[in-house]
């Protein structure tokens, strides 16, 4: 038996049953970023001493390329989920909220595609 009123049902209020998935995805991507982020920060320490060709050969290491792509995917996903929660909490106008959320999703998608494609180009040295 549902305790929800008929009005709340027809106006699509209440749980959409997507909350757990959002929460869980945020945790899984967080653990991925904890590992990948530490890896990237350690790698970046060497950059100031790199010449241009040394930097390019860093990108041409397959492990570097794979880890960079994984970092981009997990950061973009985690960031998208996090910005979503912040916007839902602080933007109360329904129209503006929807617009910001859709823009945020598309920008995150664009950034991850651009980042991954750039890693491929740098790896193959095109």
């Amino acid at each position: 038996m549902s305790l929800r009123s008929p009005l709340s049902k027809v106006s699509y209020l209440g749980s959409a049953k997507a909350g757990f998935s959002h929460w869980w995805s945020q945790r899984v991507s967080a653990i991925a970023i904890a590992l990948l982020g530490i890896w990237l920060l350690i790698e970046i320490i060497a950059w100031p001493n790199f010449s241009y060709s040394e930097l390019m050969s860093w990108f041409q290491n397959p492990i570097t390329a794979v880890l960079l792509i994984l970092t981009i995917i997990s950061v973009a996903y985690h960031s998208k989920l996090g910005i979503e929660v912040i916007v839902e909490d602080y933007v109360h106008n329904k129209g503006i909220k929807t617009m910001v959320l859709v823009s945020s999703t598309l920008i995150h998608l664009f950034l991850s595609a651009l980042g991954i494609f750039s890693v491929f180009i740098l790896f193959f040295g095109i």
Binding site: L55, F59, I72, V75, A76, S79, G82, I83, I86, L111, S112, L114, G115, S118, V119, I121, L122, I126
Partner: peptide, 20 residues
Amino acid sequence: TGVILTLGFLVFVIWLYQLT
């Protein structure tokens, strides 16, 4: 800090693209 890191991601991707 989450928002700051999102901006960091943006800068990082732009920088990767510039290198290509």
